[in-house]
């Protein structure tokens, strides 16, 4: 336990995101903006989620309110993705004007929007993924830098040592789940946006979005 562990955890968790960021986003100012806008949308959704959780925890007993809050949170997160899609859709013609190659006003490094709906999904989804992974891990990693790991109050309360506890591997598990979460968000964004894009054009348009929603629920409930 120590600073070294915390640093390792951060490297573990964010290296794919970091690589994607360097490879596809860093060189393009517009993408950087979209990346952070994605983070912003996720933060707003978590804000609303927490308000609803607060409300629910007032009325319902703990387990019900907790699961209900998680479900609403997932729905809100997915809605925020859709909202982001709609926003971007409304803005794309304007964006196109600054990004189109050959224009005098074009900023250095910006790349075309041509056929780039999945690329946009990747950029925005990564923004959401990174911020949610950061939220998931920050406190835990800070705790790992200290002398202790999670579980003492619970152990004292129950007077037993949890046999299923991750033990010394907890940091690895934590980092891996956060790593996956950031990648999941990229996936989910691409899938939802695909559904949004095809909505009204194809009868099977809802499929990828639906799949994203289901997997999001699955991940959340598996985690908890």
């Amino acid at each position: 336990m120590g600073t070294l562990l915390t640093i390792s955890c951060y490297i573990f968790t964010f290296s794919p995101s970091f690589c994607i960021f360097c490879r596809f986003i860093a060189h393009d100012p517009v993408r950087i903006i979209l990346f952070f806008l994605g983070s912003f949308f996720w933060l707003v959704s978590i804000l609303f989620s927490s308000l609803i959780w607060l409300l629910l925890s007032q009325i319902l007993p703990k387990p019900q309110s907790f699961f209900l809050a998680i479900s609403t949170s997932i729905l809100i997160q997915e809605s925020s993705r859709i909202a982001y899609f709609l926003l971007l859709k409304a803005a794309q013609s304007g964006l196109n004007k600054i990004t189109k190659q050959g224009q005098i006003s074009v900023a250095p490094g910006v790349s075309d929007l041509q056929n780039s709906r999945h690329m946009l999904g990747l950029v925005c989804g990564l923004g959401m993924g990174v911020i949610s992974a950061l939220f998931l891990t920050m406190n835990a990693f800070a705790a790992f830098s200290g002398p202790g790991t999670i579980g003492m109050p619970e152990a004292l309360l129950k007077s037993t040592v949890d046999v299923n506890r991750a033990g010394k591997y907890l940091p690895a598990f934590y980092s891996a789940s956060a790593l996956l979460l950031s990648c999941f968000h990229v996936c989910w964004t691409i899938m939802i946006w695909d559904s949004c894009h095809r909505f009204g054009r194809m009868p099977t348009a809802y499929l990828p979005g639906f799949a994203a929603l289901i997997t999001h629920f699955a991940v959340a409930y598996l985690d908890s």
Binding site: I11, T149, I150, L156
Partner: peptide, 18 residues
């Protein structure tokens, strides 16, 4: 503060993993 103290031998494995 009372806490659970884990084996720190995994720290280096974690670094290698990272």
């Amino acid at each position: 503060k009372l806490f659970i103290m884990e084996d720190s031998s995994f720290d280096y494995i974690m670094l290698i993993l990272a």
